[in-house]
Simulated assay, not measured.
Amino acid sequence: MNVHTDSALRALDATTATLSAGEQERARATLERIVATTPSTPAAQPAAPTPARGSRRRLILLPMAALTLALAWMVIPALGGDNPAYASWTATPASVTSVELSAVAAACRDKLRGSSIDLDRARLVLSERRGDHVALLYRTEDPDMSGACLARNPRGSTDVDDVDDGVGGSTGPALKAPATGYTQGAISQFDGASITDGAVGAAVTGITIHAGTLTVNASVQNGRYVAWWPGPAFPSGYVQPSGKGGPEPILTYDLTLTDGTVIHNAQPTLPS
Rank of each mutant, 00 (worst) to 15 (best):
R53H: 03
T15F: 14
V220N: 08
D82R: 09
I34L: 15
M64E: 14
G237K: 03
A87T: 07
R33S: 11
W89I: 02
L69D: 10
N153E: 01
V226W: 01
A106I: 06
S55P: 06
L79D: 14
S20Q: 03
P46V: 00
Y86H: 01
V167A: 03
A151R: 02
D197F: 05
L112S: 02
T18V: 10
G22E: 11
A78C: 04
P241V: 13
P84I: 09
D164A: 13
G246K: 07
T37Y: 13
S116D: 12
A78V: 00
A91E: 08
A14C: 08
R28F: 04
S98N: 07
D110F: 05
R58Y: 07
D118Q: 05
G206K: 08
A21D: 04
P42C: 14
A47S: 09
L67K: 12
P235I: 08
M1P: 13
P230D: 04
R33T: 11
L270W: 15
G156K: 02
S127Q: 10
L61H: 05
A17G: 10
E141M: 14
T50Q: 06
L112W: 02
S157N: 02
E100I: 01
L59A: 09
K111P: 14
S116H: 02
G243W: 10
D6T: 14
V226I: 14
P173S: 15
A72E: 13
Q24E: 04
A70C: 07
G81R: 07
G81V: 14
W73F: 08
A227P: 00
L270D: 15
N217D: 15
T261K: 08
D254R: 00
T269V: 12
Y182V: 12
A103Y: 01
I76G: 12
Q184A: 14
P154N: 10
G185E: 01
A218M: 04
R224L: 12
V125N: 03
A91N: 05
L137T: 10
L61M: 12
T38K: 13
A103I: 05
E25R: 04
G181A: 15
R130N: 04
P232Y: 01
L62M: 10
T90S: 09
P235T: 09
T180V: 15
A203C: 08
T215L: 09
Q221V: 07
D132Y: 03
G243V: 11
S55F: 10
S219P: 02
D159R: 11
G114T: 04
T196H: 08
A29E: 11
P84V: 11
P230F: 00
P51F: 00
Y253G: 03
T205C: 07
P46H: 00
A66E: 01
A48D: 01
M145A: 09
R28D: 09
A202K: 13
T252Q: 02
W228H: 05
D120N: 11
V226G: 05
T41M: 12
W89M: 03
S95L: 04
A48C: 00
G192R: 08
L175A: 09
L124I: 10
A72K: 10
A29D: 08
G147R: 04
Y86C: 01
P39G: 07
A47G: 07
